[in-house]
Design a binder for these strands. Structure first.
Length: 290
DNA sequence: CATAGATCCTGTATGC
DNA sequence: TGCATACAGGATCTAT
């Protein structure tokens, strides 16, 4: 499921293509929407907005991607949801089974395709607004906090916000308005590394422990990024359709019953927030009374 | 306002 | 073999 490292792999793949073909010189000539659900928050028809527009570059915050358009103060915004893929493929390639949106550029041999099996993801256009630090971001992303790999992340403020929440720490990690880009997989990995049980109240954690947790989030995400991200199946792929291989490096997520790599205790799976959490019952002690 | 829970969606895996 | 059910989970909406 695409979290920050997987989305960043997609961003950098798109950006490499954008630079290589000088995409800003090739207006969008055609947009096909094959599934209405793939277009989100469409005040203006996606086709109307995009045809004739030119893409400047590819940006990201947390799990959101966006492509600012030349001279329009707006951007094409993408969220991959659970199973979304952004693919760059030759225009003559047959449609993917779950192809939802096709964007073709004048004079380019490859087109941008959005495919999405579970249709939780989508494309949309959004006005660009100031981000408070001299940059811009789409209105739909305004409520998303900076992510752990953002050089402008305010660590002190983030730690303070985390510790001010009256909820369990894993819930806070998954809150994109506090620290973005973290999903179920990297939340479990970082908590395992930090030896913190996800049900512990955020405000009970000493400051240093929260600082350490964020540092573990950063490390695991950097390592995953270096290996092209995590993918359990063909659902998550980069723009060329190939998978990352961080899955083999996971130490908690998906390892129910397998020995903890630190202490040997079997990794346990628990239900949490209507999904699964994987943790070491020995390294990650639960709070006294949940 | 803050927090908790339901909901959307489809392919795959599992159980009877 | 076939049908039913569980499961995967990010973001958004609704309820408390």
């Amino acid at each position: 499921m695409p979290e920050l490292p997987e989305v960043e792999v997609v961003r950098s793949g798109l950006q490499a293509w954008a630079s290589e073909v000088q995409v800003a010189e090739h207006p969008i000539e055609r947009v096909d929407v094959l599934h209405p659900r793939a277009v989100r928050r469409a005040e203006v028809d996606l086709r109307t907005h995009l045809v004739g527009a030119r893409v400047r570059w590819v940006s990201r915050r947390g799990k959101y991607l966006w492509l600012p358009l030349v001279g329009s103060d707006s951007a094409l915004v993408a969220h991959l949801g659970m199973s979304g893929q952004l693919l760059l493929v030759p225009v003559e390639s047959p449609d993917e089974r779950h192809l939802r949106i096709r964007i073709r550029f004048e004079g380019l041999t490859r087109e941008l395709r959005f495919a999405d099996q579970r249709t939780f993801g989508g494309l949309m256009t959004g006005a660009l607004i100031p981000d408070g630090s001299g940059g811009h971001l789409p209105e739909q992303v305004a409520h998303i906090a900076r992510d752990p790999l953002d050089p402008l992340l305010d660590l002190d403020a983030t730690v303070h916000r985390i510790r001010s929440k009256d909820v369990q720490i894993k819930r806070v990690l998954l809150d994109q308005a506090v620290l973005s880009g973290i999903g179920n997989i990297y939340a479990d990995e970082a908590l395992w590394r930090a030896r913190i049980h996800g049900r512990r109240p955020a405000r009970s954690l000493p400051r240093a422990e929260v600082v350490g947790l964020i540092e573990h989030v950063r490390q695991v995400m950097r390592q995953a990024l270096a290996q092209g991200g995590t993918s359990f199946d063909a659902l998550y792929v980069n723009v060329n359709g190939s998978s990352g291989y961080f899955e083999r490096s996971l130490q908690a997520y998906g390892r129910e019953g397998e020995p903890c790599e630190r202490c040997g205790s079997p990794i346990r799976r628990e239900r949490f927030m209507n999904r699964s959490s994987y943790l070491c019952p020995r390294c990650q002690r639960p709070p006294r009374r949940r």
